[in-house]
Design a protein around this nucleic acid. Structure first.
Lengths: 211, 211
DNA sequence: ATGATAACGATACGTACAGTATCGTAATCG
DNA sequence: CGATTACGATACTGTACGTATCGTTATCAT
Protein backbone atom coordinates (compact mmCIF):
# COMPACT_ATOMS: atom_id res chain seq x y z
CA UNK A 1 0.00 0.00 0.00
CA UNK A 2 3.05 2.30 0.04
CA UNK A 3 4.06 4.54 -2.79
CA UNK A 4 6.42 1.96 -4.24
CA UNK A 5 5.58 -1.44 -5.57
CA UNK A 6 2.30 -2.37 -3.94
CA UNK A 7 1.64 -5.05 -1.38
CA UNK A 8 4.19 -7.74 -2.28
CA UNK A 9 6.17 -9.07 0.62
CA UNK A 10 9.43 -8.58 -1.18
CA UNK A 11 11.11 -5.42 -2.35
CA UNK A 12 11.42 -5.01 -6.09
CA UNK A 13 14.50 -2.89 -6.64
CA UNK A 14 14.35 0.30 -4.62
CA UNK A 15 13.97 0.43 -0.86
CA UNK A 16 17.15 -1.31 0.30
CA UNK A 17 17.25 -2.44 3.92
CA UNK A 18 16.16 -6.05 4.27
CA UNK A 19 18.79 -8.24 2.56
CA UNK A 20 16.25 -10.84 1.39
CA UNK A 21 17.22 -14.39 0.56
CA UNK A 22 16.70 -16.10 -2.75
CA UNK A 23 16.41 -14.71 -6.22
CA UNK A 24 15.33 -11.05 -6.23
CA UNK A 25 12.34 -9.87 -8.12
CA UNK A 26 13.02 -8.73 -11.62
CA UNK A 27 12.62 -5.01 -12.07
CA UNK A 28 12.55 -5.69 -15.76
CA UNK A 29 9.48 -7.88 -15.42
CA UNK A 30 7.90 -5.26 -13.19
CA UNK A 31 8.27 -2.58 -15.82
CA UNK A 32 7.22 -4.89 -18.64
CA UNK A 33 4.02 -5.70 -16.77
CA UNK A 34 3.14 -2.07 -16.16
CA UNK A 35 3.93 -1.13 -19.76
CA UNK A 36 1.82 -3.98 -21.10
CA UNK A 37 -0.99 -2.94 -18.78
CA UNK A 38 -0.99 0.60 -20.12
CA UNK A 39 -0.82 -0.61 -23.70
CA UNK A 40 -3.74 -2.94 -23.28
CA UNK A 41 -5.73 -0.36 -21.37
CA UNK A 42 -5.37 1.94 -24.32
CA UNK A 43 -6.26 -0.78 -26.81
CA UNK A 44 -9.15 -2.63 -25.20
CA UNK A 45 -10.11 -0.54 -22.17
CA UNK A 46 -10.38 -1.58 -18.59
CA UNK A 47 -13.23 -4.06 -18.54
CA UNK A 48 -11.82 -6.06 -21.45
CA UNK A 49 -8.36 -6.13 -19.96
CA UNK A 50 -7.35 -9.58 -18.72
CA UNK A 51 -4.45 -10.51 -16.51
CA UNK A 52 -3.67 -13.34 -18.89
CA UNK A 53 -3.49 -10.82 -21.70
CA UNK A 54 -1.10 -8.66 -19.71
CA UNK A 55 1.08 -11.66 -18.92
CA UNK A 56 1.20 -12.64 -22.56
CA UNK A 57 2.00 -9.14 -23.76
CA UNK A 58 4.67 -8.68 -21.11
CA UNK A 59 6.23 -12.09 -21.78
CA UNK A 60 5.68 -13.05 -18.18
CA UNK A 61 3.94 -15.81 -16.26
CA UNK A 62 0.65 -15.08 -14.57
CA UNK A 63 2.13 -15.99 -11.21
CA UNK A 64 4.69 -13.23 -11.61
CA UNK A 65 1.89 -10.73 -11.77
CA UNK A 66 -0.08 -12.17 -8.87
CA UNK A 67 3.11 -12.31 -6.82
CA UNK A 68 3.24 -8.50 -6.98
CA UNK A 69 -0.38 -7.40 -7.18
CA UNK A 70 -3.22 -9.19 -5.44
CA UNK A 71 -5.64 -8.58 -8.29
CA UNK A 72 -6.19 -6.75 -11.51
CA UNK A 73 -7.35 -3.58 -9.82
CA UNK A 74 -4.23 -2.59 -7.84
CA UNK A 75 -2.20 -3.33 -10.92
CA UNK A 76 -4.24 -0.89 -12.94
CA UNK A 77 -4.06 1.65 -10.14
CA UNK A 78 -0.29 1.53 -10.20
CA UNK A 79 -0.20 1.78 -13.98
CA UNK A 80 -2.58 4.70 -13.74
CA UNK A 81 -0.18 6.44 -11.36
CA UNK A 82 2.36 6.62 -14.16
CA UNK A 83 0.07 8.58 -16.44
CA UNK A 84 0.52 12.36 -16.71
CA UNK A 85 -1.40 14.65 -14.37
CA UNK A 86 -1.73 18.42 -14.09
CA UNK A 87 1.52 20.20 -14.63
CA UNK A 88 2.00 23.51 -12.87
CA UNK A 89 2.41 26.44 -15.24
CA UNK A 90 2.94 29.94 -13.83
CA UNK A 91 2.06 32.68 -16.28
CA UNK A 92 1.65 35.36 -13.64
CA UNK A 93 -2.13 35.53 -13.90
CA UNK A 94 -4.84 33.10 -12.81
CA UNK A 95 -6.67 32.90 -16.13
CA UNK A 96 -3.44 32.27 -18.01
CA UNK A 97 -2.32 29.59 -15.56
CA UNK A 98 -5.59 27.73 -15.72
CA UNK A 99 -5.95 27.90 -19.46
CA UNK A 100 -2.40 26.71 -20.04
CA UNK A 101 -2.67 23.88 -17.51
CA UNK A 102 -6.01 22.63 -18.73
CA UNK A 103 -4.98 22.79 -22.36
CA UNK A 104 -1.89 20.77 -21.58
CA UNK A 105 -3.87 18.26 -19.55
CA UNK A 106 -6.45 17.75 -22.28
CA UNK A 107 -3.66 16.98 -24.72
CA UNK A 108 -2.59 14.17 -22.40
CA UNK A 109 -6.04 12.68 -22.71
CA UNK A 110 -5.51 12.25 -26.42
CA UNK A 111 -2.13 10.55 -26.15
CA UNK A 112 -2.66 8.25 -23.17
CA UNK A 113 -5.34 5.82 -21.92
CA UNK A 114 -6.36 8.40 -19.30
CA UNK A 115 -9.78 8.78 -20.85
CA UNK A 116 -10.64 5.12 -20.37
CA UNK A 117 -8.73 4.28 -17.20
CA UNK A 118 -9.89 7.24 -15.20
CA UNK A 119 -13.62 6.50 -15.30
CA UNK A 120 -13.04 2.79 -14.88
CA UNK A 121 -11.21 3.28 -11.62
CA UNK A 122 -13.73 5.80 -10.44
CA UNK A 123 -16.59 3.45 -11.17
CA UNK A 124 -14.93 0.62 -9.32
CA UNK A 125 -14.27 2.81 -6.33
CA UNK A 126 -17.96 3.67 -6.15
CA UNK A 127 -18.66 0.31 -4.55
CA UNK A 128 -15.21 -0.69 -3.36
CA UNK A 129 -14.05 1.31 -0.34
CA UNK A 130 -10.63 -0.35 -0.29
CA UNK A 131 -9.87 0.97 -3.73
CA UNK A 132 -10.76 4.45 -2.55
CA UNK A 133 -8.10 4.32 0.11
CA UNK A 134 -5.46 3.53 -2.48
CA UNK A 135 -6.81 5.74 -5.21
CA UNK A 136 -7.72 8.89 -3.33
CA UNK A 137 -4.17 9.92 -2.42
CA UNK A 138 -3.15 9.44 -6.04
CA UNK A 139 -6.00 11.58 -7.26
CA UNK A 140 -5.32 14.24 -4.67
CA UNK A 141 -1.71 14.46 -5.78
CA UNK A 142 -2.76 14.83 -9.38
CA UNK A 143 -4.64 18.06 -8.77
CA UNK A 144 -2.16 19.67 -6.42
CA UNK A 145 -0.71 21.89 -9.18
CA UNK A 146 -4.20 23.25 -9.72
CA UNK A 147 -4.50 24.16 -6.08
CA UNK A 148 -1.07 25.77 -6.19
CA UNK A 149 -2.17 28.04 -9.02
CA UNK A 150 -5.24 29.05 -7.06
CA UNK A 151 -3.16 29.81 -3.98
CA UNK A 152 -0.89 32.03 -6.03
CA UNK A 153 -3.97 33.90 -7.22
CA UNK A 154 -5.08 34.47 -3.64
CA UNK A 155 -1.66 35.86 -2.77
CA UNK A 156 -1.92 38.12 -5.80
CA UNK A 157 -5.34 39.35 -4.75
CA UNK A 158 -7.14 37.85 -7.72
CA UNK A 159 -9.26 35.69 -5.47
CA UNK A 160 -10.92 36.89 -2.30
CA UNK A 161 -9.34 35.30 0.77
CA UNK A 162 -12.54 33.70 2.00
CA UNK A 163 -13.10 31.61 -1.14
CA UNK A 164 -13.02 27.84 -0.62
CA UNK A 165 -10.14 26.84 -2.89
CA UNK A 166 -10.99 23.16 -2.78
CA UNK A 167 -14.43 23.94 -4.12
CA UNK A 168 -12.95 26.35 -6.64
CA UNK A 169 -10.71 23.61 -8.01
CA UNK A 170 -13.74 21.37 -8.40
CA UNK A 171 -15.51 24.15 -10.24
CA UNK A 172 -12.63 24.47 -12.68
CA UNK A 173 -12.29 20.75 -13.30
CA UNK A 174 -16.00 19.98 -13.13
CA UNK A 175 -17.13 20.89 -16.66
CA UNK A 176 -14.26 18.96 -18.17
CA UNK A 177 -15.08 15.91 -16.09
CA UNK A 178 -18.73 16.08 -17.00
CA UNK A 179 -18.16 16.50 -20.71
CA UNK A 180 -15.42 13.96 -20.96
CA UNK A 181 -16.91 11.18 -18.87
CA UNK A 182 -20.61 11.75 -18.51
CA UNK A 183 -21.38 13.12 -21.93
CA UNK A 184 -18.66 11.45 -23.96
CA UNK A 185 -17.88 14.65 -25.80
CA UNK A 186 -14.86 14.91 -28.04
CA UNK A 187 -11.96 16.78 -26.56
CA UNK A 188 -11.45 20.15 -28.15
CA UNK A 189 -8.70 22.41 -26.75
CA UNK A 190 -10.71 25.39 -27.99
CA UNK A 191 -13.30 24.75 -25.31
CA UNK A 192 -10.84 25.54 -22.53
CA UNK A 193 -10.88 29.33 -22.71
CA UNK A 194 -14.65 29.90 -22.39
CA UNK A 195 -14.76 27.22 -19.72
CA UNK A 196 -12.18 28.95 -17.56
CA UNK A 197 -13.69 32.35 -18.18
CA UNK A 198 -17.13 31.24 -17.09
CA UNK A 199 -15.81 29.59 -13.95
CA UNK A 200 -13.85 32.73 -13.07
CA UNK A 201 -16.62 35.24 -13.79
CA UNK A 202 -19.69 33.24 -12.87
CA UNK A 203 -22.90 32.44 -14.62
CA UNK A 204 -24.91 35.31 -13.22
CA UNK A 205 -24.92 38.67 -14.90
CA UNK A 206 -22.79 40.79 -12.56
CA UNK A 207 -24.22 44.23 -13.46
CA UNK A 208 -27.89 43.38 -12.98
CA UNK A 209 -29.93 43.19 -9.85
CA UNK A 210 -32.81 40.80 -10.18
CA UNK A 211 -35.19 42.65 -7.90
CA UNK B 1 -33.38 0.70 -29.07
CA UNK B 2 -36.68 2.58 -28.68
CA UNK B 3 -37.87 4.12 -25.50
CA UNK B 4 -39.89 1.11 -24.48
CA UNK B 5 -38.62 -2.34 -23.76
CA UNK B 6 -35.34 -2.54 -25.65
CA UNK B 7 -34.61 -4.68 -28.65
CA UNK B 8 -36.85 -7.70 -28.11
CA UNK B 9 -38.79 -8.73 -31.18
CA UNK B 10 -42.03 -8.98 -29.26
CA UNK B 11 -43.98 -6.34 -27.45
CA UNK B 12 -44.21 -6.66 -23.69
CA UNK B 13 -47.48 -5.08 -22.72
CA UNK B 14 -47.76 -1.54 -24.12
CA UNK B 15 -47.57 -0.72 -27.82
CA UNK B 16 -50.57 -2.62 -29.19
CA UNK B 17 -50.72 -3.15 -32.92
CA UNK B 18 -49.27 -6.48 -33.94
CA UNK B 19 -51.61 -9.19 -32.59
CA UNK B 20 -48.75 -11.66 -32.00
CA UNK B 21 -49.30 -15.41 -31.83
CA UNK B 22 -48.45 -17.65 -28.92
CA UNK B 23 -48.10 -16.85 -25.29
CA UNK B 24 -47.47 -13.15 -24.66
CA UNK B 25 -44.51 -11.95 -22.69
CA UNK B 26 -45.14 -11.51 -19.02
CA UNK B 27 -45.14 -7.89 -17.94
CA UNK B 28 -44.84 -9.19 -14.42
CA UNK B 29 -41.57 -10.92 -15.22
CA UNK B 30 -40.39 -7.76 -16.95
CA UNK B 31 -40.95 -5.67 -13.88
CA UNK B 32 -39.55 -8.30 -11.54
CA UNK B 33 -36.34 -8.38 -13.58
CA UNK B 34 -35.92 -4.61 -13.53
CA UNK B 35 -36.67 -4.44 -9.82
CA UNK B 36 -34.21 -7.22 -9.04
CA UNK B 37 -31.61 -5.45 -11.17
CA UNK B 38 -31.97 -2.24 -9.21
CA UNK B 39 -31.87 -4.08 -5.91
CA UNK B 40 -28.71 -5.94 -6.81
CA UNK B 41 -27.09 -2.83 -8.22
CA UNK B 42 -27.62 -1.19 -4.89
CA UNK B 43 -26.33 -4.18 -2.96
CA UNK B 44 -23.30 -5.34 -4.93
CA UNK B 45 -22.69 -2.67 -7.55
CA UNK B 46 -22.44 -3.00 -11.26
CA UNK B 47 -19.32 -5.08 -11.79
CA UNK B 48 -20.39 -7.72 -9.28
CA UNK B 49 -23.89 -7.92 -10.71
CA UNK B 50 -24.54 -11.18 -12.56
CA UNK B 51 -27.40 -12.04 -14.85
CA UNK B 52 -27.77 -15.31 -13.01
CA UNK B 53 -28.12 -13.37 -9.79
CA UNK B 54 -30.81 -11.19 -11.32
CA UNK B 55 -32.66 -14.24 -12.61
CA UNK B 56 -32.53 -15.87 -9.20
CA UNK B 57 -33.69 -12.77 -7.36
CA UNK B 58 -36.50 -12.16 -9.85
CA UNK B 59 -37.60 -15.81 -9.81
CA UNK B 60 -37.07 -16.02 -13.52
CA UNK B 61 -35.09 -18.15 -15.95
CA UNK B 62 -31.98 -16.73 -17.54
CA UNK B 63 -33.49 -17.19 -20.99
CA UNK B 64 -36.35 -14.89 -20.04
CA UNK B 65 -33.84 -12.14 -19.45
CA UNK B 66 -31.84 -12.76 -22.61
CA UNK B 67 -35.08 -12.91 -24.59
CA UNK B 68 -35.64 -9.25 -23.76
CA UNK B 69 -32.17 -7.78 -23.41
CA UNK B 70 -29.23 -8.86 -25.52
CA UNK B 71 -26.76 -8.52 -22.66
CA UNK B 72 -26.28 -7.28 -19.17
CA UNK B 73 -25.53 -3.73 -20.21
CA UNK B 74 -28.80 -2.74 -21.91
CA UNK B 75 -30.64 -4.27 -18.99
CA UNK B 76 -28.80 -2.04 -16.58
CA UNK B 77 -29.35 0.97 -18.83
CA UNK B 78 -33.09 0.41 -18.78
CA UNK B 79 -33.11 -0.08 -15.02
CA UNK B 80 -31.09 3.09 -14.70
CA UNK B 81 -33.71 4.93 -16.72
CA UNK B 82 -36.20 4.31 -13.95
CA UNK B 83 -34.13 6.10 -11.34
CA UNK B 84 -34.99 9.67 -10.41
CA UNK B 85 -33.38 12.57 -12.28
CA UNK B 86 -33.49 16.33 -11.84
CA UNK B 87 -36.95 17.60 -11.03
CA UNK B 88 -37.79 21.10 -12.15
CA UNK B 89 -38.53 23.47 -9.29
CA UNK B 90 -39.46 27.07 -10.02
CA UNK B 91 -38.90 29.41 -7.09
CA UNK B 92 -38.82 32.56 -9.19
CA UNK B 93 -35.08 33.11 -8.84
CA UNK B 94 -32.12 31.28 -10.34
CA UNK B 95 -30.24 30.67 -7.12
CA UNK B 96 -33.34 29.32 -5.42
CA UNK B 97 -34.18 27.04 -8.33
CA UNK B 98 -30.74 25.58 -8.48
CA UNK B 99 -30.35 25.11 -4.75
CA UNK B 100 -33.71 23.41 -4.47
CA UNK B 101 -33.16 21.16 -7.47
CA UNK B 102 -29.69 20.11 -6.45
CA UNK B 103 -30.69 19.48 -2.88
CA UNK B 104 -33.52 17.29 -4.04
CA UNK B 105 -31.30 15.45 -6.47
CA UNK B 106 -28.64 14.75 -3.87
CA UNK B 107 -31.29 13.23 -1.64
CA UNK B 108 -32.05 10.80 -4.44
CA UNK B 109 -28.44 9.69 -4.37
CA UNK B 110 -28.89 8.53 -0.82
CA UNK B 111 -32.05 6.51 -1.42
CA UNK B 112 -31.29 4.88 -4.78
CA UNK B 113 -28.37 3.06 -6.42
CA UNK B 114 -27.67 6.16 -8.51
CA UNK B 115 -24.30 6.64 -6.89
CA UNK B 116 -23.04 3.23 -8.04
CA UNK B 117 -24.90 2.80 -11.30
CA UNK B 118 -24.10 6.18 -12.72
CA UNK B 119 -20.31 5.88 -12.71
CA UNK B 120 -20.46 2.27 -13.83
CA UNK B 121 -22.37 3.12 -16.95
CA UNK B 122 -20.19 6.09 -17.63
CA UNK B 123 -17.07 3.98 -17.29
CA UNK B 124 -18.40 1.38 -19.65
CA UNK B 125 -19.34 3.97 -22.20
CA UNK B 126 -15.78 5.31 -22.18
CA UNK B 127 -14.70 2.39 -24.36
CA UNK B 128 -18.01 1.22 -25.75
CA UNK B 129 -19.45 3.56 -28.36
CA UNK B 130 -22.65 1.56 -28.75
CA UNK B 131 -23.52 2.16 -25.15
CA UNK B 132 -23.05 5.86 -25.67
CA UNK B 133 -25.71 5.91 -28.34
CA UNK B 134 -28.23 4.39 -25.96
CA UNK B 135 -27.10 6.19 -22.86
CA UNK B 136 -26.57 9.72 -24.12
CA UNK B 137 -30.23 10.48 -24.87
CA UNK B 138 -31.15 9.23 -21.42
CA UNK B 139 -28.55 11.43 -19.78
CA UNK B 140 -29.57 14.42 -21.86
CA UNK B 141 -33.16 14.01 -20.75
CA UNK B 142 -32.11 13.82 -17.13
CA UNK B 143 -30.64 17.31 -17.10
CA UNK B 144 -33.30 19.03 -19.13
CA UNK B 145 -34.98 20.53 -16.03
CA UNK B 146 -31.66 22.15 -15.20
CA UNK B 147 -31.51 23.75 -18.62
CA UNK B 148 -35.10 24.91 -18.25
CA UNK B 149 -34.23 26.72 -15.04
CA UNK B 150 -31.32 28.44 -16.76
CA UNK B 151 -33.51 29.52 -19.66
CA UNK B 152 -36.01 31.02 -17.25
CA UNK B 153 -33.14 32.98 -15.71
CA UNK B 154 -32.16 34.32 -19.12
CA UNK B 155 -35.71 35.45 -19.75
CA UNK B 156 -35.69 37.11 -16.36
CA UNK B 157 -32.44 38.92 -17.13
CA UNK B 158 -30.46 37.11 -14.46
CA UNK B 159 -28.12 35.66 -17.05
CA UNK B 160 -26.64 37.62 -19.93
CA UNK B 161 -28.06 36.43 -23.25
CA UNK B 162 -24.70 35.49 -24.72
CA UNK B 163 -23.87 32.94 -22.02
CA UNK B 164 -23.53 29.33 -23.21
CA UNK B 165 -26.24 27.61 -21.20
CA UNK B 166 -24.98 24.15 -21.98
CA UNK B 167 -21.64 25.05 -20.47
CA UNK B 168 -23.35 26.77 -17.58
CA UNK B 169 -25.24 23.58 -16.78
CA UNK B 170 -21.97 21.67 -16.76
CA UNK B 171 -20.51 24.25 -14.41
CA UNK B 172 -23.39 23.76 -12.00
CA UNK B 173 -23.28 19.99 -12.08
CA UNK B 174 -19.50 19.70 -12.34
CA UNK B 175 -18.45 20.08 -8.71
CA UNK B 176 -21.06 17.59 -7.60
CA UNK B 177 -19.92 15.07 -10.19
CA UNK B 178 -16.30 15.51 -9.23
CA UNK B 179 -16.88 15.17 -5.52
CA UNK B 180 -19.30 12.33 -5.76
CA UNK B 181 -17.54 10.15 -8.31
CA UNK B 182 -13.93 11.21 -8.53
CA UNK B 183 -13.27 12.00 -4.91
CA UNK B 184 -15.77 9.70 -3.26
CA UNK B 185 -16.87 12.40 -0.84
CA UNK B 186 -19.89 11.90 1.35
CA UNK B 187 -23.00 13.67 0.23
CA UNK B 188 -23.89 16.60 2.40
CA UNK B 189 -26.89 18.74 1.42
CA UNK B 190 -25.23 21.64 3.20
CA UNK B 191 -22.61 21.81 0.50
CA UNK B 192 -25.18 22.80 -2.12
CA UNK B 193 -25.57 26.47 -1.27
CA UNK B 194 -21.91 27.53 -1.43
CA UNK B 195 -21.52 25.42 -4.55
CA UNK B 196 -24.31 27.20 -6.38
CA UNK B 197 -23.20 30.60 -5.12
CA UNK B 198 -19.65 30.09 -6.36
CA UNK B 199 -20.81 28.91 -9.77
CA UNK B 200 -23.14 31.89 -10.06
CA UNK B 201 -20.69 34.53 -8.88
CA UNK B 202 -17.41 33.11 -10.15
CA UNK B 203 -14.11 32.39 -8.49
CA UNK B 204 -12.48 35.68 -9.30
CA UNK B 205 -12.87 38.64 -7.03
CA UNK B 206 -15.31 40.86 -8.89
CA UNK B 207 -14.45 44.21 -7.24
CA UNK B 208 -10.70 44.04 -7.83
CA UNK B 209 -8.70 44.76 -10.91
CA UNK B 210 -5.52 42.75 -11.04
CA UNK B 211 -3.42 45.31 -12.84
C1' DA C 1 32.06 -24.28 -4.13
C1' DT C 2 27.63 -25.57 -2.49
C1' DG C 3 23.26 -25.68 -0.44
C1' DA C 4 19.05 -23.00 0.97
C1' DT C 5 15.84 -19.80 -0.66
C1' DA C 6 12.79 -17.57 -3.70
C1' DA C 7 11.54 -15.64 -8.15
C1' DC C 8 11.25 -16.99 -12.95
C1' DG C 9 8.09 -18.62 -17.30
C1' DA C 10 4.98 -22.20 -18.25
C1' DT C 11 1.06 -24.64 -17.55
C1' DA C 12 -2.67 -27.24 -15.32
C1' DC C 13 -6.47 -26.74 -12.37
C1' DG C 14 -11.08 -25.44 -9.95
C1' DT C 15 -14.51 -21.92 -9.85
C1' DA C 16 -17.62 -18.49 -11.66
C1' DC C 17 -20.26 -16.52 -14.97
C1' DA C 18 -21.63 -15.15 -19.85
C1' DG C 19 -24.49 -16.42 -23.33
C1' DT C 20 -26.84 -20.42 -25.99
C1' DA C 21 -29.66 -24.38 -26.37
C1' DT C 22 -33.07 -27.50 -24.97
C1' DC C 23 -36.14 -29.49 -21.71
C1' DG C 24 -41.42 -30.08 -20.51
C1' DT C 25 -45.17 -26.75 -19.31
C1' DA C 26 -48.47 -22.95 -19.79
C1' DA C 27 -50.89 -19.27 -22.11
C1' DT C 28 -52.97 -17.13 -26.12
C1' DC C 29 -54.79 -17.01 -30.94
C1' DG C 30 -57.27 -18.79 -35.00
C1' DC D 1 -58.11 -28.00 -30.33
C1' DG D 2 -53.89 -27.36 -32.75
C1' DA D 3 -50.27 -24.03 -33.84
C1' DT D 4 -47.33 -20.85 -31.79
C1' DT D 5 -44.59 -18.69 -28.44
C1' DA D 6 -43.14 -17.47 -23.70
C1' DC D 7 -42.37 -19.61 -19.32
C1' DG D 8 -38.86 -21.60 -15.46
C1' DA D 9 -35.35 -24.91 -15.22
C1' DT D 10 -31.24 -26.83 -16.46
C1' DA D 11 -27.37 -28.43 -19.24
C1' DC D 12 -23.85 -26.84 -22.09
C1' DT D 13 -19.63 -24.23 -24.17
C1' DG D 14 -16.29 -20.78 -23.71
C1' DT D 15 -13.57 -17.47 -21.25
C1' DA D 16 -10.99 -15.65 -17.55
C1' DC D 17 -9.99 -15.34 -12.72
C1' DG D 18 -6.95 -16.72 -9.11
C1' DT D 19 -4.16 -20.82 -7.17
C1' DA D 20 -0.92 -24.40 -7.44
C1' DT D 21 2.83 -26.81 -9.25
C1' DC D 22 6.15 -27.82 -12.74
C1' DG D 23 11.53 -27.58 -13.72
C1' DT D 24 14.87 -23.65 -14.06
C1' DT D 25 17.66 -19.74 -12.55
C1' DA D 26 19.64 -16.08 -9.69
C1' DT D 27 21.21 -14.54 -5.20
C1' DC D 28 22.75 -15.09 -0.38
C1' DA D 29 25.08 -17.50 3.57
C1' DT D 30 28.28 -20.66 4.73
Amino acid sequence: MGAEAGSGLRNGDGDAGAPAAGRPRSGEAHRAILDATLELLQEVGFSALTVEGVAGRAGVGKATIYRRWPSKLPLVVEAFGQLPAFEDIDTGALAGDLKAMLTRYLEDFLSTPLATVYPSLVAERAHNPELGQVLDPVLRGRRRPLEAALQRAVARGEIAPHVDLDLAADLIVGPIAVRLFFRGMKINPGMVDPMVDLALDGIRRSAARTE
